[in-house]
Computed example of a mutant assay.
Amino acid sequence: MTDLTLKGLETGRAQVRGGVRMVPLLRRRPVEGLRLHPRLTGGDIAVVGSQRRPRYIGYVPHAYVATWGGEAASAAYGTWLSEVERGAPSGAEAERAAREEAAGAPPRIKLFGLRRQVQRTDRTRLRFLPLHLAMEGYLSLHFGGPDIAWKEWSRTTLRRGLSPREEDSYLGVQVRGLAEALRTFEIVRGQCGVALYVGDELASVVVTPHPEDYRALHPTLVLDMFGEAIYRNATFVAESPHLHAPLRTRGVSDLAGLRAALEEQRASWRDFHDETMLAPLTDADYTLTPVYRMGEFRLDRFLPSFDPARTNHIGEAIVREDGEPGYLKTFVLSNAQTKRGHLLSKLAAAGWHLDATAASLATDRRGLITRMRSAGMEHLLRQDILDRFWAGNPNP
């Protein structure tokens, strides 16, 4: 377990529009030797793995390309991804699909294949899918299921583990007010990232290595994934208050004193933001999983401790050897997703034995089954166990 650091980043002045608050993250100097480029997929759904036996299927609005070494000094740019669209429709098929849609037929979903989520496309170039690394890490949490064939588990669970496992998320365009906020908010000098709040709940932290990279990637936030709590907050929270520290003016008689008072106010805001508003992210412990080595950088994904009493974030990062993040993107889990992660961790730690797991949670077997039912995991148990539970058997 380790913590998450935002080393090398400073907090800027917050901007608020409606229920959306965006706090710029600034660098005094860019991360040398690393650049991040947007790469639009041109498709709606990606199948990762072979087309016959897909390993992962999900909505993939865009991909990132990370370059390092000598080529990383080039400017950020955007490209269209076309070479991976195997079996792309011919001109005649595309025209026919357009005619069908014009006649009222439902729109077709564009499908393209990727051999893996992280793919090296050149000697110093890596293509990966933003947040899908993090979500895959969460979905694969103890995915194999019980290691011992305890009689309480269903045959399907013992044979296939947790497959299929699904989780819901929302696109940024579905988060009320986010698109308008991204359109109107000012990108400040030196900005390499943003801490995004919706209804003053931390929705995501995005960090890039260079200010030009952030300018190129800023509009793609509406294509990112956000959790259920963020969607709900955007729907029901009217407006976030403007937070600011009072400016000390007593004793100020010249410009130098005014500059000092202004810097004192900015420092007070930075301390409040970093120690209070960012605490759900930076004060937690995480399990890091290295995914790819990129010279002096490493691509990681991380999972939280799944503490039900706090907000939990999953995410991914490109970290330099000294610990400074060149890239970071996080996703906040809903209460239900946190409960599922917590129960799975407890079950795995107890060897998937129901009574031992119940004891670790300070409850009994019936209480554990109640929690599993609340978390949407009751289908993992045998039907006769569930029938006795519904019948009120104290020890189903």
Rank of each mutant, 00 (worst) to 15 (best):
G91T: 10
R298S: 09
V198C: 14
G18D: 14
H273G: 05
A14L: 10
L217W: 05
D355H: 09
P394D: 13
L81Q: 07
S204R: 10
G33S: 06
A134R: 02
R320C: 02
I314R: 00
G326L: 03
A102K: 11
Q383I: 05
A279H: 00
A76N: 02
W390R: 15
E167Q: 12
W153C: 07
T287M: 13
P209V: 05
S140L: 14
L328M: 08
R320Q: 06
R52Y: 01
E378A: 15
A46M: 13
R115Y: 07
M294R: 06
V206A: 05
K7G: 10
G58K: 04
V291K: 13
D147I: 09
G251P: 10
V16C: 07
I318P: 08
P308V: 06
L278A: 07
I187D: 03
H132Q: 10
G12L: 03
F306M: 03
K110D: 08
V252Q: 08
T208P: 07
V60G: 01
R53T: 06
A103H: 02
L133P: 03
P246I: 14
L114Y: 11
V60M: 06
P290Y: 10
R52C: 03
G161K: 11
E316I: 03
L255A: 05
F128V: 02
E186S: 14
E180M: 05
Y286A: 01
F128S: 00
V48H: 04
V188N: 07
S374H: 09
R382Q: 08
L139D: 02
R27N: 01
E201C: 02
K346F: 08
S82E: 14
M277Y: 05
L354Y: 04
E378I: 11
G190Q: 01
D213F: 01
L217M: 11
H62P: 09
A348E: 08
S90T: 14
A181M: 09
Y64C: 15
L221H: 11
R340Q: 10
Q117E: 15
L114V: 04
H37N: 15
I230C: 05
P396R: 03
A358R: 07
G367C: 11
L328P: 03
L25I: 00
V31R: 11
D300F: 06
K110H: 13
I109T: 11
R13F: 13
L223C: 13
S374E: 14
V198K: 15
T79D: 12
A76C: 07
L303N: 01
A88W: 12
P209N: 12
R125M: 09
S345K: 10
T5M: 03
A260G: 07
E166V: 15
L141I: 01
T330R: 00
R232Q: 07
E167S: 15
R388E: 12
H273T: 10
V31T: 13
G113M: 09
P38Q: 01
A348P: 04
F185K: 02
G12W: 01
F297K: 05
G193W: 00
E32S: 12
H273F: 15
R250V: 10
M22P: 06
R250F: 12
G376M: 12
D283L: 01
G18T: 07
D271V: 11
A98W: 05
I187L: 12
